[in-house]
């Protein structure tokens, strides 16, 4: 085991996969010479050359669309959208091309494309701060990864690059500096397998990325009050490990989802529906969502703090729910 940052874990995953497979290419705005605005791709151009790591024009539609075209023809492109919000700039290419082009053409080719999408954070304003993973989870054809630790950031990205289907890989901007243990040597993290980050019997909480970090901090405080919550990190949203959540709820009898995204029809809504369909007899408390009220993210920090679930919000919500 070695301890590295989430950002370094992504960089290592890219380097290892580029080393392993010459068909892996990497491009996006500022990713090559400058190493990316978040410095995640530093050193890769020097190591793999400008044919495989290059700066693209500010042309999100082509960035993603060309990724689909190149993937159809046997390359394994990794495209960095500078901010996850730009998924909507490239909406046709993300949802209709990456998601549907293979289906629409009867499975004539594979589309092994990875779209890296830095999400979340604060102070970046309404068009640079969102966590739009629910949109991706809703769309057919797109796999979706939401790594929460350096180990998963590396393992899920390596797996994403090797998969023959398009993956939207969300890397949370507030986690880039997070440090954590990463296994030495070769490994990948499978899609569709949630992990229980903390065991408990009072309540099941589903959270990922920065909301997971806040949830685990709240869980420590709750533990001191004698409340043990079970915390599930789904790791990927498509495929989505429904079983682990259902099994946990059978044990705890209650569920809360903490989500850094709009409340209405978010991932939490899907989990609520899932429990209604498959676990209603086991629920002895109302299902609960903590999410952003349905407004865009402002720029000023104190306004952001008012609407994004905090450790304190999570702590209080659990206390109310299990009281």
């Amino acid at each position: 085991m070695s301890v590295i940052t989430y950002s370094k874990a992504i960089n290592q995953a890219l380097a290892e996969e580029m080393e392993r497979d010459e068909n892996v290419i990497l491009y996006g705005q500022d990713v090559a010479v400058w190493g990316g605005i978040f410095k995640v791709t530093e050193g890769l151009r020097d190591r793999f050359g400008p044919e495989r790591v290059f700066d693209s024009p500010i042309s999100e539609n082509v960035m993603v669309g060309a990724g689909v075209g190149a993937a159809m023809m046997g390359l394994r492109p990794v495209v960095e959208l500078q901010f996850a919000d730009f998924i909507f700039t490239a909406g046709d290419e993300v949802f209709l091309k990456a998601g549907m082009w293979r289906f629409m053409h009867g499975g004539a080719y594979k589309v092994p494309l990875v779209i890296r999408a830095p999400s979340g954070g604060s102070g970046f304003g309404p068009e640079h701060s969102a966590c739009p993973e629910a949109f991706i989870m809703h769309a057919p054809g797109l796999l979706c990864a939401v790594p929460s630790t350096p180990a998963d950031a590396k393992g899920l990205l390596k797996e994403a690059i090797r998969l023959d289907n398009p993956v939207v890989y969300f890397e949370h901007k507030l986690l880039y500096a997070m440090r954590g243990e990463v296994p030495d040597g070769e490994y990948t993290t499978p899609f569709g397998k949630a992990v229980v980050r903390r065991e408990g019997d009072a309540l099941t909480i589903v959270a990922w990325q920065d909301m997971l970090r806040r949830t685990l901090a709240a869980a420590n405080r709750l533990s001191k009050d004698g409340i043990e919550v079970e915390v599930i990190d789904p790791r990927t949203l498509n495929p989505f490990d429904r079983e682990t959540i259902i099994e946990s709820v059978k044990k705890t009898g209650a569920c809360m989802v903490v989500e850094e995204a709009y409340r209405t029809l978010g991932v939490g809504a899907e989990i609520g529906a899932l429990l209604l369909e498959h676990a209603l007899p086991y629920l002895d408390k109302p299902f609960k969502r903590l999410a952003i009220p349905d407004v865009p993210l402002p720029t000023s920090q104190h306004l952001v703090n008012f609407i994004v679930p905090s450790e304190e919000d999570i702590y209080k919500a659990v206390k109310e729910l299990v009281a």
Binding site: G65, A66, G69, A70, M72, D92, W101, H105
Partner: peptide
Amino acid sequence: LGESGTLGGGFVISVGVGMA
């Protein structure tokens, strides 16, 4: 290689095909 349902969707695909 196919056709885009949205008009002009083939432009972006062609760039990727060209890259490959």
